[in-house]
């Protein structure tokens, strides 16, 4: 079953065709890698799918048309994204960052803060526990009380993923999870992605690090100049001439 299908998606900025008629489909419980040179339209694709930008075309997520929905509604459907430059809330602590995320918190409704204080407290306790578990899963429990602003770039990437986990998404969009991350941490992130996939989560991952992305992906989409140029299993894509040319062309 496809959890996400995108049909003939287009986005133009003035004369520039950032995304020019892309169609992709992702099967539930798989990792899809999205590769391509700079300016290929990968991040724009992300913005369109997560609702941060409006384009033309059809996006179906879990059987719901999401291309006209605002970002927060799409997130509520169970799709959560990270950002290329990690957006940790630096003026809040790491655990506050995590505790922000869960949906349908009673304490987020002003009247419940007043009328059902016990329920709000009880839920806060559960959420705090859950955030502890997730921090443990990502092995950053010791950072819980730090202000997120004090974290390293790599740690912020982990924080973003951990925060995304808090809303129990069915699908995660990761924008360059390995960029600027040291090799140890990168291996860790790959392991988390595989573990989560085995539990049934779906991933769409933008990445420049070709060896890393081919290792974790079930399928790979190669984009260039706003179009999908190739799609297939990692081994297939690696053999494709046009892909090699784009990636090797610049370097030699």
């Amino acid at each position: 079953m496809d959890i996400l299908s995108v049909k003939d998606l287009k986005k133009h900025f003035g004369g520039v065709k950032a995304v020019d008629g892309c169609s992709i489909a992702i099967e539930t419980g798989t990792v899809m890698g999205l590769i391509g040179p700079n300016g290929a339209g990968k991040t724009t694709m992300f913005n369109l799918i997560s609702g941060f930008e409006r384009g033309v075309g059809e996006i179906m997520f879990k059987g719901i048309r999401t291309d006209k929905l605002s970002p927060f509604k799409i997130a509520r459907c169970g799709m959560v994204r990270t950002f290329q430059i990690p957006r940790a809330l630096t003026k809040m602590t790491v655990s506050e960052n995590l505790m922000l995320a869960p949906k349908t918190q009673a304490g987020e409704r002003i009247w419940d803060v007043w009328l059902r204080p016990r329920r709000v407290r009880e839920q806060e306790r559960q959420i705090r526990e859950k955030s502890r578990d997730i921090l443990e899963f990502f092995e950053i429990s010791h950072l819980g009380d730090e202000y997120a602003g004090a974290l390293s770039g790599g740690q912020k990437k982990l924080l973003e993923m951990a925060r995304a986990m808090m809303i129990d998404p069915s699908m995660m969009l990761l924008d360059e999870p390995f960029a600027g991350v040291n090799p140890t941490l990168a291996r860790k992130i790959s392991r988390y992605i595989r573990e989560l996939r085995d539990d049934g989560m779906t991933f769409l991952v933008i990445e420049h690090d070709i060896p890393a992305i081919t290792k974790i992906s079930d399928r790979i989409v190669f984009m260039n100049e706003g179009k999908v140029m190739a799609e297939g299993e990692p081994a297939e894509i690696k053999r494709r001439r046009d892909v090699l040319e784009v990636y090797m062309g610049g370097e030699g």
């Binding site: 959560v80 809330l89 922000l100 995320a101 809303i167």
Partner: peptide, 17 residues
């Protein structure tokens, strides 16, 4: 907590629903 997250970067709470 939601208010404070909006103050800092409203894209984050939006992305979290």
């Amino acid at each position: 907590r939601v208010l404070k997250s909006i103050r800092e970067d409203e894209a984050v709470p939006s992305a979290l629903g």
